[in-house]
Design a protein around this nucleic acid. Structure first.
Length: 482
RNA sequence: CGGAGCGUGGCGCAGCCUGGUAGCGCACCUGUUUUGGGAACAGGGGGUCGGAGGUUCGAAUCCUCUCGCUCCGACCA
């Protein structure tokens, strides 16, 4: 009692942001490190979030005419070698499969059966999908071709962090091919728009959409477009990208088609993706000192029902009442969970808080007696506590979930805006970051030509994030990034 | 891959400098009393100290090597 300031997560964001991040993941039971270096185990609660993300966005992709397919995990080394710039970008982080058998050796099993041509575990699939496309595309009538796969990829990272950067990660990778450069460019912009809409409408955060500067481009791309979000520690997170690959990959993969004029032409391709990294973004954008805060539309559980059992005699009544409420919520399409674990209710409550379940419903003897429920919003806390009739609650819940979403989005937007500071010169940048201020600095693109910029960027480990569309490409965002 | 730090029961840590076979908080189990919000008391279970080797009568403590993790940096979704 009286310990008003005790937070569910130690340390707090202000005390140690990276450590806070780790602790939130642990407290919310979303993921953990695995015995495999750099690879994480996504636990059921975290994976349920990813599944919801997949389910919603997959529907959007299909509406856009994208077809799902599945390509091999292993890519022949020679495929990667086809595109010089591409291999240059990924070679350093490829895991290589060189053998196809194990044999008993002196000290246990040893690899045997050396492969003539090694395979690379896909760091991305441009080359192998390009190879397939080269066979599937013959005529302009086969275009556009829009393919996607939900898959895992592997990049041997120097330094990993759960969700944000792991050696193996999950994503979707889309690969489209078009007849004209205009279509390819439009495709990039359309999909980037879908990402932005998805992040805002489902993950409840906004960021900046824009064009990457040349040095931040995908290896082999003509142009890279990105969605950059701002985390609570002021660092930027590239949450999604689309790449206009021009004819780079169609040239190296031989994706040709016979055009309307009868001549053989190279297709214009694009690739685009977001990964499990967005979950890391959600944590760093929405989480607070009491743990995770799930955006309602994508939350694994939208409502958690906590039965408050005072004595055994009321247990059955409370459970059946809770079940009844849960059934009605389910009928309404709400993802609801009843926490029947044999624990003290206060512990269950904090567990729900740490997991970030948007709405907590408390049902005890009083509620059962009066046919009511008491609920609390995760984003507001105790002050939002309200007791309603069951029907009243059922009717109001959609609005409540919507309000929570709106509030979370508004907060992330306000944070982004407050932490995007306008500057004019290199010395403005230097001053800002030397003062340990958090956020991004937005300067005119002409600053990129300033010879002093590189040193300042290096000194404060900054990078250009993107040239926002909102500024018509006249400004560039510079900051620290994940 | 460079710099720093850390690896001791499920979690967080102390012990290590000044070697003598392990301790605290939380969690867990049992019981009693509690119970609308992170309960109290009593009793109890669990670790051989990341791994390997070495020094020593004796090592969590010293030495060497190794693996892993975290932070900062370079590289990247």
């Amino acid at each position: 009692m009286g310990k008003k300031h005790r937070t569910a997560i130690t340390p707090t964001r202000a005390e140690d942001f990276p450590e806070w991040y780790q602790q939130v993941i642990k407290a919310a039971d979303m993921a953990e490190n695995s015995p495999v270096r750099g690879c994480m185990i996504i636990k059921p609660y975290g994976f349920a979030l990813w599944e919801n993300i997949q389910r919603v966005f997959d529907g959007w992709l299909k509406d856009y005419g994208v077809q799902n397919a599945s390509f091999p995990l292993l890519i022949p080394l020679s495929f990667l070698e086809k595109e010089a710039e591409h291999i240059d970008g990924f070679a350093k982080e490829c895991a290589v499969v060189t053998h196809h058998r194990l044999e008993a050796g002196e000290n246990g099993l040893v690899p045997a059966g050396k492969l003539e041509e090694p395979y690379v575990i896909r760091p991305t699939s441009e080359t192998i999908i390009g190879d397939a496309m080269s066979r599937w595309i013959q005529s302009y009538r086969d275009l556009p071709m829009k393919l996607n796969q939900w898959s895992n990829v592997m990049r041997w990272e120097m330094r990993t962090r759960l969700f944000l950067r792991t050696s193996e990660f999950f994503w979707h990778e889309g690969h489209n091919a078009f007849e004209t450069p205009e279509e390819a460019k439009d495709d990039c912009l359309i999909i980037l728009g879908m990402y932005e809409k998805f992040f805002e409408e489902y993950l409840a955060f906004s960021g900046f959409t824009g064009i990457k500067t040349p040095d931040e481009r995908f290896p082999g791309a003509l142009e890279t477009y990105a969605f950059e979000a701002v985390m609570q520690d002021g660092k930027a997170l590239q949450a999604a990208t689309t790449h206009d690959l021009g004819q780079t990959f169609s040239r190296s993969c031989n994706i040709t088609f016979q055009g309307r004029d009868g001549t053989e032409q190279l297709a214009h391709t694009t690739s685009w993706a977001f990964s499990t990294r967005v979950i890391g973004g959600m944590i760093m954008i929405h989480g607070d000192d009491d743990g995770m805060m799930m955006p309602p539309r994508i939350a694994p559980q939208q409502v958690i029902i906590l039965p408050f059992i005072k004595d055994e005699s009321t247990e059955d009544d409370i459970y059946s009442f809770a079940q009844d409420v849960a059934d009605k919520l389910k009928a309404q399409g709400v993802r609801v969970h009843i926490d029947k674990r044999d624990m003290r209710s206060s512990d269950k409550m904090w567990d729900a808080v740490k997991k970030g379940v948007p709405v907590r419903v408390e049902i005890g003897g009083r509620e059962v007696e009066k046919g009511e429920v008491t609920y609390v919003r995760r984003d507001i806390g105790r002050d939002s506590k309200e007791t309603l009739s069951v029907d009243g609650f059922l009717k109001k819940l959609p609005t409540v979930l919507g309000d929570i979403h709106d509030a979370m989005l508004a907060r992330s937007k306000a944070f982004r805006d407050e932490h995007t500071i306008d500057g004019e010169t290199v010395s403005d940048i230097e001053e800002f970051f030397a003062a340990d201020r958090i956020g991004l600095m937005k300067v005119p693109v002409s600053v990129l030509d300033d010879a002093d910029l590189e040193a300042v960027m290096k000194k404060h480990s900054l990078s250009t994030r993107c040239m926002p569309f909102a500024d018509n490409g006249k400004k560039v965002l510079i900051g620290k990034a994940y």
